[in-house]
Design a protein around this nucleic acid. Sequence first.
DNA 1: TGAATTTTATGCAAGATGGTACAAAATGAT
DNA 2: ATCATTTTGTACCATCTTGCATAAAATTCA
Lengths: 194, 194
Amino acid sequence: MIARRGRPPAYDREAALMAIAEAFRLRGYAAASLDEIARAAGMNRPSLFAAFGNKKAMYLAALEDYRRRMEQAVSPALAGEGPLGDALTGFFDAAIGFYGEGAAPGCLVLCTATAEAPADEEIAAALADTISGIEAQLAARIAREAAECEVAGLAQLMVSVLICIAVQARAGADEAALKSFARASVAAALRQAL
Amino acid sequence: MIARRGRPPAYDREAALMAIAEAFRLRGYAAASLDEIARAAGMNRPSLFAAFGNKKAMYLAALEDYRRRMEQAVSPALAGEGPLGDALTGFFDAAIGFYGEGAAPGCLVLCTATAEAPADEEIAAALADTISGIEAQLAARIAREAAECEVAGLAQLMVSVLICIAVQARAGADEAALKSFARASVAAALRQAL
DNA sequence: TGAATTTTATGCAAGATGGTACAAAATGAT
DNA sequence: ATCATTTTGTACCATCTTGCATAAAATTCA
């Protein structure tokens, strides 16, 4: 074990990042002040700056962390051996559960980065990357069963269902309604594609 | 004609409201400063306040105006006499065109109110009302042809497609891709429902 | 024990922001 | 022409915001 010199940090980086993401998710990028964020993370502003850089860097780090946790939450459903329909339904159920957690419902990326995207290229890129990353994850699973030429269209359709779920959760839709919407969408999409 | 006393306003209320909506659409609610908004509207701040109230009132007025313009833009497609599939495709094409106009792509309501909704009840209500308003408009058209029990589910599905389109436009999707997505979604939904 | 190093905490500075007070300007009524 | 009325434009204020400077605290190494 390497003993680091100097005063040891009082914060846990992972926990702090998650708290930062939650603060941004609750208030949006522009409205979340660094005081709020620091309070949420249990740090003070200078430590926050030292650890994560300025506000935009914090936000980008929070977006990336949230995306990583999101993918962690949904990937088990896609990794299973069952039929495609079950995998997709499990994927959406996991996403709906993930979006329902915390102080405010909805997706940090899909519900707050949309507001900032036109004003900032890096945030727009993070938004686009998140969408295409999830699309790739879905496409990889779909490719195990669907015909070659159908994969891309089906993956895009499923990403769009996910986006709908994120926004409707933000608007107050309850989880049961979202789950039944997901089920109907999966059924319709597979009926068309297969 | 009633001659109003006092100095006549130098601004046109409708044009100003549209400019305000565009400023909020470009930057989001929190990041748009009243200076920017005033510049966009060609007014100065005191006139802005006198005409529309404080920042939140301006935003709520902009949301309502944008929603009204949006419904105006898409309602002709739904009013036509053709088959349901054509009506829905026309609806989405009109929406895609509307979302592509102006300085920043995407929907003012669906791409900026999502960030503020958890922090403000009135904004959350405006978001939810906009979604349910469009849903009602779609349901009314769908009810002209679909079986009674299918109307609600189909309308919800179409609203969700619209939400996807709004967010994906914000993320930089080009109009051609969005149109083909809309076509595929309509085909899939109608195949299931009818 | 003392020097070096890293983090924490208080506090500050420069600037932006929402909102308003007040005088000047432009119009209708008398 | 004068007054009442409404809008405009300048200037201002109090507050909040980001970001940093600096000193105190906590730890490792010699």
